[in-house]
């Protein structure tokens, strides 16, 4: 490993919930408001995982009040406390961008992996 990459290597999380695009997950992230800190939960479908070492991210999509909301998280960020996997989804691609064009009940429909 070269020196530049090794700088942040210790910050990588060793254990992290395993999930992939299509899974429904709950993300617990730390939010600071003023000087108070609390845990915020974001629930939705994983639409992508973008690899990149320490800067690896995943994006979660949900429909809130009829509007699609996507939020991406840095996997190794200390602000991302934990991830609960609620349901494994059966999908045929790695990035679920096609969900962005869907409206109504089809927008969140994904077959469950048996």
């Amino acid at each position: 490993m070269d020196l530049v990459q090794s700088v942040g290597a210790a910050q990588k999380k060793k254990k992290f919930a395993e999930f992939a695009a299509g899974d429904t997950i709950k993300v617990h992230s730390r939010v600071t408001e003023g000087n108070k800190e609390r845990i915020q939960v974001f629930e939705g479908i994983v639409t992508e995982r973008k690899l990149g070492g320490l800067s690896e991210t995943f994006t979660v999509r949900r429909i809130a009040h009829g509007v699609g909301v996507e939020r991406s998280f840095l996997i190794h960020s200390p602000r991302v406390e934990k991830v609960d996997v609620l349901r494994r989804g059966l999908v045929r691609r790695a990035k679920l961008y096609y969900l962005q064009e869907r409206v109504g009940s089809k927008a969140t429909r994904i077959k469950e992996k048996k």
Binding site: V7, G8, Q11, T32, L54, S55, H76, P78, R79
Partner: peptide
């Protein structure tokens, strides 16, 4: 490269 600061900032 990028690293995380103590407050979680990237």
């Amino acid at each position: 490269t990028s690293i995380f600061a103590e407050n979680g900032e990237f």
